[in-house]
Each structure stands twice: as structure tokens, then as C-alpha cells.
């Protein structure tokens, strides 16, 4: 077995185990930390697939942004030290059943479906190539989604400002 294969299985195990623990643990802060480690496992998988840019962005966005956001909202809104209530048995079973069923169906499809093997040589996946694509207006360009997302972000930002503004007059 090659070194790379071992690394892959380690990363996969990290990702899945910590994801399972993230949804399973009863302490909300730990849940956030497990989630983060799962996401870092995914970043590791991106590295493994030689998508360095995607991996770095994954870490920047999740470790630097979303995880901190989640942890802050946990600090601010929850009694972070307390255990969360265990969900009722029925719901757990139902959810687990649904998830397992879905998983089974997807796996059946996966195994049955043959994916075409790549015929064309690998394209340049460097940062500049991704950048060009993001701003390209042509057939496979991403300028439109990019702009739509910017608009969405702008709306979110204005919403945040409005919410923050409303609290002002009440302050001493």
C-alpha cells in the first residue's frame, strides 16, 4: 500500500468520525469543535486531490470564519457548559432510519452508475485559472453566479447594519 493511500484513509476517517461526533455529542461547544475538525479533514482531502486553493479557502472560510462565528453565537446565546437534552428515542430512530435509507439508496445508485473516465488532459487548476473562470462571461464562466452572490452578500450586510442600528436609540 502506498503512503498516499494511508493518508487518504486517515483523512477520511477523521472527516467521518468527527462529523458523526459533531451530530452526536451533547455539548454544543464540543460539537462545534468536532464540526471544525471534520471540515479540516475535508480540506485535507482537497489537499490530497491536489486542489490546494480549494483546501486553503476551505480552511480560511471555515476555521477563520464560520467556526468562529458558530463558537461566538454559542458563547452569546447558549449556556455553553450545559448538556443539551437528548432527543426523544423515536425521533432518533426515525432520523437514523431516514439517513440510513437515503445512504443505502445513494450507494445503490453510485455502484450502479459508471462514471466516464477522463479523456482530456488535466487542465490548469492554478489560482489564476480559477480567477479567470470566476470572472469569465462566456459559456462556462462564473461571472453571473459570482455577481448574484455578491448581491446576496450586500443584502446580508445591509440587513446586519439595519439590525445593529435599531439597537442604538435604546442605549444609554
Amino acid at each position: 500500500m502506498k503512503g498516499e493511500t494511508i493518508v487518504f484513509y486517515l483523512l477520511a476517517a477523521l472527516t467521518l468520525v468527527s462529523a458523526a461526533m459533531a451530530v452526536g455529542t451533547r455539548r454544543i461547544f464540543r460539537s462545534a469543535v468536532y464540526l471544525l475538525s471534520s471540515l479540516i479533514g475535508i480540506a485535507g482531502l482537497y489537499f490530497w486531490m491536489r486542489f490546494e486553493f480549494a483546501a486553503a479557502v476551505q480552511i480560511v472560510v471555515y476555521a477563520g470564519g464560520i467556526a468562529v462565528l458558530i463558537i461566538f453565537s454559542v458563547f452569546l446565546t447558549q449556556r455553553a457548559g450545559d448538556d443539551m437534552p437528548t432527543p426523544p428515542m423515536l425521533r432518533t430512530i426515525a432520523a437514523a432510519g431516514a439517513a440510513l435509507l437515503g445512504m443505502g439508496l445513494v450507494m445503490l445508485q453510485l455502484v450502479a452508475h459508471p462514471f466516464p473516465t477522463p479523456a482530456v488532459a488535466e487542465v490548469d487548476r492554478s489560482v489564476s485559472a480559477i480567477g479567470r473562470r470566476m470572472l469569465a462571461t462566456g459559456d462556462d464562466g462564473f461571472a453571473l453566479p459570482f455577481e448574484v452572490v455578491s448581491l446576496l452578500l450586500l443584502a446580508a450586510m445591509i440587513g446586519c447594519i439595519v439590525i445593529a442600528m435599531r439597537a442604538k436609540p435604546n442605549q444609554p
Partner: peptide, 9 residues
Amino acid sequence: TAISSLNVI
């Protein structure tokens, strides 16, 4: 930049 943001965690 990415890894250094792990520090905050």
C-alpha cells in the same frame, strides 16, 4: 493565512 486562522480556535 489559512493555517494561521486555526490559532484562534
